[in-house]
Amino acid sequence: KEFRPGDKVVLPPYGVGVVAGIAQRSVSGVSRAYYQVDFPGSRSKAYVPVEAPHSVGLRKAL
């Protein structure tokens, strides 16, 4: 896996977040693995496909 729990990442347009782990989510009846990204200071979460994280701009924070 490219990202691990605890990694600081950037996800446009949300900003800097932390990978909380990998979650299985069902979309249109198909279960897939997603990185769960939490954003400190907020209750917001984002789910990014493990198979294509760069397709939505997910990258490691510098």
Rank of each mutant, 00 (worst) to 15 (best):
K1Y: 15
K1F: 15
K1A: 14
E2G: 10
E2N: 10
E2D: 10
E2M: 12
F3C: 15
F3Y: 07
F3I: 05
R4H: 11
R4P: 14
R4S: 11
R4L: 10
R4G: 06
R4I: 13
P5E: 10
P5N: 06
P5Q: 09
G6F: 03
G6W: 02
G6P: 01
D7G: 02
D7W: 08
D7A: 04
D7K: 01
K8P: 05
K8T: 07
V9Y: 08
V9A: 01
V9E: 00
V10L: 07
V10R: 04
V10Y: 15
L11C: 07
L11Y: 07
L11K: 01
P12F: 09
P12H: 10
P12E: 08
P13M: 07
P13E: 05
P13N: 09
P13T: 07
Y14S: 01
Y14F: 11
Y14K: 02
Y14M: 07
G15D: 00
G15P: 01
G15F: 04
G15S: 02
G15N: 02
G15L: 02
V16L: 15
V16D: 06
V16W: 11
G17I: 01
G17Q: 01
V18K: 04
V18R: 07
V19D: 00
G21I: 04
G21N: 07
G21E: 05
G21V: 05
I22R: 02
A23M: 14
A23V: 15
A23K: 13
A23H: 12
A23E: 12
Q24Y: 15
Q24K: 11
R25Q: 06
R25C: 15
S26W: 14
S26A: 09
S26Q: 11
S26C: 14
V27G: 04
V27F: 11
V27K: 09
S28I: 04
S28N: 15
S28M: 13
S28Y: 09
S28P: 02
G29L: 03
G29R: 05
G29W: 02
G29Q: 03
G29V: 01
V30E: 09
V30F: 06
V30S: 07
V30D: 04
V30G: 05
V30R: 07
S31V: 14
S31R: 10
S31Y: 12
R32S: 08
R32I: 09
A33M: 14
A33D: 12
A33W: 15
A33E: 13
A33T: 09
A33Q: 12
A33R: 11
Y34R: 00
Y34A: 01
Y34N: 00
Y35V: 03
Q36S: 05
V37A: 00
V37P: 00
V37W: 01
V37N: 00
V37D: 00
V37C: 04
D38K: 12
D38I: 15
D38W: 15
F39W: 02
F39S: 01
F39P: 00
P40G: 11
P40D: 09
P40Q: 08
P40N: 07
P40V: 10
P40T: 07
P40Y: 12
G41T: 09
G41W: 10
S42W: 10
S42I: 12
S42R: 12
S42Q: 09
R43F: 12
R43D: 13
S44M: 14
S44K: 14
K45H: 12
K45F: 11
K45P: 15
K45M: 11
A46N: 03
A46Y: 10
A46I: 13
A46F: 10
A46L: 09
Y47K: 00
Y47W: 12
Y47C: 04
Y47R: 00
V48F: 04
P49W: 08
P49C: 09
P49M: 05
P49K: 03
V50G: 01
V50H: 02
E51K: 05
A52F: 11
A52N: 14
A52I: 06
P53D: 05
P53H: 08
P53N: 05
P53C: 10
P53Q: 06
H54I: 05
H54L: 08
H54Q: 10
H54F: 09
H54A: 10
V56A: 14
G57C: 07
G57L: 05
G57V: 05
L58S: 02
L58E: 08
L58P: 03
R59K: 09
R59G: 04
R59M: 09
K60S: 11
K60F: 11
K60E: 09
A61S: 07
A61M: 12
L62P: 13
L62W: 11
